[in-house]
């Protein structure tokens, strides 16, 4: 009898760091439809900077609780983008949603208390307005906190500039934030056509399919010749 197939995405045992730690970027952001343009902009910006986006939207392992999955993602990613712009009072419950700040706290905790490689972590905190965070999470003052004003192009520029600051001369050959924002706008305009060819609704692509499409589009767009 054949042994059962190995899972396609084997995780390192608890406490071990993934081989891709240095190139993986944890995106901690809302998943609702209204936020989708910013989420996709962040994902695209990470790919345009040649790093690998990771987020809780990745295919589910049904046996894991959500918090276990988040902890595993945080452990596996050296870089983190945390958008706290949706920390606001909900009309339905009169209470704020606090998942993003919680995950930011886990990331900062790993950075502070983790092993040596975890202490290399770096994160970018995004919000709608500068200093709004001081009204609900003032203890994070001192982190890189950038306002994107709900604009995908601002979010892209923030990610690109943050990575450029972190990576120094290693990021010299990356495109600038404005150029990446222009590429993103062109990719988003092409996405309905690409999705149609795949018999998919562009708003219903899986996180991995979106990443793969953006990666393929960037590679094709960068290729000199008739394709560009």
């Amino acid at each position: 009898m054949l042994p059962p197939p190995k899972p396609h995405n084997r995780r390192p045992p608890l406490g071990k760091t993934a081989a891709s730690y240095d190139t993986d970027v944890f995106i901690n952001c809302p998943f609702d439809e209204d936020y989708r343009p910013i989420r996709e902009a962040l994902t695209f910006a990470v790919l345009a900077c040649n790093l690998r986006p990771r987020c809780a939207l990745e295919a589910n392992n049904g046996a894991m609780t959500r918090i276990d999955k988040i902890v595993e993602l945080i452990r596996d990613c050296r870089w983190g983008i945390h958008d706290v712009s949706r920390t606001e009072i909900s009309e339905e419950h009169g209470l704020p949603r606090f998942n993003m700040p919680l995950e930011l706290g886990l990331f900062l905790g790993a950075h502070r208390f983790g092993r040596a490689e975890q202490r290399e972590k770096s994160c970018l905190v995004l919000d709608r307005e500068l200093f709004r965070y001081q009204r609900f999470i003032s203890d994070i003052a001192g982190q890189d906190i950038i306002a994107h004003a709900g604009r995908p192009d601002h979010a892209i520029e923030a990610v690109r500039n943050w990575l450029s600051d972190e990576l120094g001369h290693l990021a010299d050959d990356l495109d600038g934030g404005t150029a990446i924002a222009r590429q993103f706008a062109r990719f988003q305009a092409d996405l309905p056509d690409v999705s149609h060819r795949l018999n998919r609704d562009p708003s219903r692509l899986t996180f991995r399919d979106y990443c793969k499409a953006a990666e393929g589009w960037l590679a094709t767009d960068r290729t000199p010749g008739p394709a560009s």
Binding site: N9, L47, N50, A59, L198
Partner: peptide
């Protein structure tokens, strides 16, 4: 820094492995 920074242009994977439901 005690750990090297990533080689952005190196041959590392840019996308997570394909899972159930992915194209």
């Amino acid at each position: 820094r005690r750990y090297p920074l990533p080689d952005l242009f190196g041959p590392h994977p840019r996308v997570i492995p394909r899972g159930e439901g992915d194209l």
